[in-house]
Design a protein around this nucleic acid. Structure first.
Length: 273
DNA sequence: AGAAGAACCTGGTAGC
DNA sequence: TGCTACCAGGTTCTTC
């Protein structure tokens, strides 16, 4: 599940491989690949050939391939999407939905569950994509701090787990790293966001930044499908996520799995209060 | 308006 | 063995 650290890892690899490269041709197999609320739909994708990639950036879980001529290719990997740098003669399988050809190699978008979406826009500032325009601050920036979370938590009855996964509050934080951050801050995912105490909010801010930095350093978490663009697995080892029934590495308690907002959440009831 | 839940989608797996 | 049922989850949509 590509969250901020996974997407950032892909961004770094693509930046090193794609910057300054010219697109020769593209191939894609289904219109549903394009973001649903893109008015231009796939009419813009054929504009890609002959464009040069200037820069690869990221906002939350969105990858932005900035092109010559002010076009931007937006890519969201969804749940199982991978962007792979491959040799041109490598065969595409049935999960390949988009290929971008460069001189000497190609970029392949594989996505078995097809939650991933792409779209080309004319200028970075003109995007109407709701999920992208409503993003909150980057968790690793200075704008993501105690004051911001305090304001956003205030009066919210929803669980802290759900609020942390709200992209308008913490851009790029998903199921894995919200659990990991809550574990580090010793806060139960079941708590109501509005009732988290100031000292706990401070701990949470630090925990979120720490866990994301550590995960980026480890090139993300490979739980099932995720691979980096160079085909590597992520080396981050979660402390609670996916460890139901195992021992808590901090207190030895038993890690449990509960469902919050239709999502699995893992935590240690003994040391997360 | 905020909150909760369903829908989208398919590979993998549990259970019979 | 082979079938069905269900689960995984980021985002968007619908309902309350």
């Amino acid at each position: 599940m590509p969250e901020l650290p996974e997407v950032e890892t892909v961004r770094r690899e693509l930046e090193s491989r794609l910057a300054g490269k010219r697109i020769e041709k593209i191939w894609w197999n289904r219109d549903s690949l394009v973001f649903r609320d893109f008015p231009e739909k796939n009419r813009l994708l054929p504009l890609l050939p002959k464009k040069t990639i200037r820069k690869v950036s990221r906002k939350g879980k969105y990858l932005l391939l900035e092109m010559s001529g002010n076009h931007v290719l937006i890519i969201h990997l969804g749940m199982t999407g991978t962007l792979l740098v491959r040799s041109k003669d490598q065969k595409r399988d049935r999960h390949t939905h988009l290929e971008i050809f460069f001189r000497g190699f190609k970029l392949t978008l594989r996505d078995p569950r097809m939650f991933g979406r792409v779209g080309l826009i004319r200028e970075a500032g003109t995007c109407r994509l709701a999920g992208l325009t409503c993003l909150g601050p980057e968790p690793l920036s200075k704008d993501f701090n105690y004051a911001w979370l305090k304001e956003k938590f205030s009066g919210r009855k929803t669980t802290i787990k759900s609020v942390l996964m709200d992209q308008a509050i913490a851009a790029g934080v998903g199921n894995i790293y919200s659990d990991e951050a809550l574990f580090r801050a010793r806060i139960s995912p079941r708590r109501s966001a509005g009732r988290i105490r100031p000292a706990e909010i401070k701990k949470l801010v630090t925990a979120i930044k720490q866990v994301l930095k550590k995960a980026i350093k480890n090139m993300g978490t490979t739980f099932s499908d995720y691979r980096t663009s160079f085909g590597r697995r992520g080396d981050y080892r979660p402390l609670v996520y996916g460890r139901e029934g195992e021992r808590c590495k901090r207190c030895g308690g038993k890690i449990v799995r509960i469902t919050i907002g239709n999502r699995s959440s893992f935590f240690c009831p003994a040391c997360q209060k």
